[in-house]
């Protein structure tokens, strides 16, 4: 026979470690906006959740799974199948290297290699300090100034491998300046 303390442990598990890191109120609100809930609403729900958090938190996948009666594993399968979904937050600066045909011909593979070495991370990941993420894009649509990288919403065209360390350094300097001004204010 189950005792009351065992029932209490369900509640504790419900608010366990995974959920402490993220406030899931937004997930509940998003879920509410899709009622009556059905499994086919999964992808739009994931899109909304990512829109809010910038990525898909693990605890959110559990919550969505329970609401839609789909296993977390299955949702993880969907989230890792589509390129649009991220499981980790993006860095402050997102550097997108275009890997389209024109940029490839103009040497974007070398740009990517250099950037990966410079930041010591692989494309698709974020530096430990949370400052930089590298992403690759199939084509940005700016072939006339190939090879292209985007930092945030700014285009940097006709790049060479020598520009990469300079670009990273200037972004770091910008941050340091911003932090100093903040401290003075």
């Amino acid at each position: 026979m189950i005792s009351t303390t065992e029932f209490a442990s369900i509640a504790r598990l419900d608010n366990g470690h995974k959920n402490r890191e993220v406030d899931l109120a937004a997930v509940d609100e998003i879920l509410d906006s899709y009622r009556p809930l059905a499994p086919h609403a999964l992808i739009p729900i994931l899109q909304d959740v990512q829109e809010h958090y910038g990525f898909l938190p693990e605890a959110a996948l559990d919550r969505i799974g329970r609401a839609l009666d789909i296993s977390t594993t299955r949702i993880f399968g969907v989230a890792t199948f589509y390129n649009q979904f991220r499981l980790h937050p993006l860095g402050k600066h997102v550097i997108r290297i275009c890997r389209g045909t024109a940029c490839h011909v103009k040497g974007s593979a070398a740009l990517l290699d250099t950037l990966e070495m410079e930041l010591n991370i692989k494309a698709g990941s974020t530096t430990k300090d949370g400052l930089f993420s590298i992403e690759t894009v199939a084509c940005i649509g700016a072939c006339s100034i190939a090879p292209v990288a985007m930092v945030g919403d700014k285009f940097h065209g006709r790049l060479t491998v020598k520009d990469i360390p300079r670009l990273v350094k200037s972004l770091k300097r910008e941050d340091a300046k911003g932090a100093a001004e903040k401290a003075v204010a």
């Binding site: 693990e58 789909i70 296993s71 977390t72 594993t73 993880f76 199948f81």
Partner: peptide
């Protein structure tokens, strides 16, 4: 009705595995 394992990732990286 358990779904402990599923297809995860895609292409060459595809794997039947639990979440995360």
């Amino acid at each position: 009705n358990v779904g402990a394992i599923s297809f995860t990732k895609r292409g060459f990286q595809s794997e039947v595995a639990p979440a995360y």
